[in-house]
Measured scan of single mutants.
Amino acid sequence: EDGINLEEIREFAKNFKIRRLSLGLTQTQVGQALTATEGPAYSQSAICRFEKLDITPKSAQKLKPVLEKWLNEAELRNQEGQQNLMEFVG
């Protein structure tokens, strides 16, 4: 629908959760960090719904690039050390 690749979103949601957990981050931490930079659309409950795919494809499509960018950045910081990650997450 609307050129939205559901399979891709499903895959990303699954990987997002795995990668988030491997960084040792909670949904709350991700939500707080993103709410600070991106606004309330990225709250803990939004992250939770995204991971469960309990949102419309359109919403998922909107969240995905922001979550992807944030997660990549978080992983980079983590490679530089846990301290850097925690500063990034705030």
Score class of each variant (00 low, 15 high):
42 Y>D: 02
12 F>R: 00
16 F>Y: 05
51 E>Q: 02
40 P>R: 11
66 V>R: 08
28 T>S: 14
15 N>Q: 13
25 L>Q: 05
69 K>G: 05
61 Q>L: 13
27 Q>L: 15
81 G>Y: 06
2 D>K: 14
24 G>K: 08
88 F>M: 04
85 L>E: 10
34 L>C: 02
74 A>Y: 12
30 V>I: 08
66 V>P: 03
20 R>G: 00
78 N>P: 05
69 K>S: 10
19 R>P: 01
12 F>D: 02
37 T>Q: 14
77 R>S: 05
90 G>N: 13
50 F>A: 03
87 E>M: 02
47 I>D: 00
49 R>W: 00
90 G>R: 06
49 R>E: 12
2 D>M: 15
60 A>D: 01
81 G>Q: 07
33 A>R: 04
75 E>F: 10
21 L>S: 06
53 L>G: 15
38 E>R: 07
33 A>K: 05
25 L>D: 00
66 V>F: 09
69 K>W: 02
1 E>Y: 06
33 A>D: 09
38 E>D: 08
79 Q>R: 12
66 V>G: 04
78 N>H: 15
26 T>D: 06
31 G>K: 04
69 K>N: 10
63 L>V: 05
6 L>F: 15
54 D>K: 09
70 W>K: 07
22 S>N: 15
7 E>Y: 05
43 S>Y: 07
54 D>Y: 13
40 P>N: 09
39 G>L: 01
8 E>P: 03
44 Q>M: 13
58 K>N: 14
11 E>H: 06
17 K>A: 09
88 F>Y: 12
44 Q>L: 07
79 Q>T: 10
1 E>Q: 01
29 Q>G: 03
24 G>P: 01
50 F>R: 03
52 K>H: 07
39 G>Y: 04
78 N>S: 15
2 D>H: 10
53 L>Q: 10
48 C>Y: 06
73 E>V: 05
68 E>C: 01
55 I>N: 01
74 A>F: 10
29 Q>E: 10
16 F>N: 00
83 Q>A: 14
78 N>R: 13
13 A>T: 03
2 D>A: 08
86 M>Q: 12
37 T>L: 11
53 L>R: 04
56 T>I: 00
55 I>V: 12
25 L>P: 01
15 N>E: 09
16 F>Q: 03
25 L>M: 04
77 R>L: 09
8 E>K: 04
50 F>P: 05
51 E>S: 01
47 I>K: 00
49 R>D: 12
74 A>S: 03
16 F>H: 00
13 A>E: 00
58 K>T: 14
52 K>Q: 15
32 Q>E: 14
19 R>S: 03
41 A>N: 14
84 N>S: 15
21 L>M: 14
82 Q>P: 11
82 Q>K: 13
20 R>H: 01
49 R>A: 14
27 Q>V: 12
48 C>M: 12
66 V>C: 04
67 L>G: 04
39 G>T: 01
35 T>R: 10
35 T>M: 13
43 S>E: 05
41 A>V: 08
55 I>L: 14
72 N>L: 12
30 V>N: 06
33 A>Y: 12
36 A>C: 07
40 P>L: 07
9 I>F: 10
60 A>S: 05
76 L>K: 15
58 K>W: 15
80 E>A: 12
75 E>R: 00
43 S>G: 13
65 P>I: 09
34 L>G: 01
37 T>Y: 10
8 E>T: 09
7 E>R: 06
68 E>W: 02
3 G>S: 15
53 L>Y: 03
7 E>A: 12
22 S>H: 11
16 F>D: 02
8 E>V: 02
66 V>D: 06
19 R>T: 05
40 P>I: 08
25 L>S: 03
47 I>W: 02
40 P>C: 08
12 F>C: 05
75 E>G: 00
48 C>W: 04
58 K>R: 11
31 G>W: 07
11 E>W: 03
20 R>Q: 00
81 G>P: 03
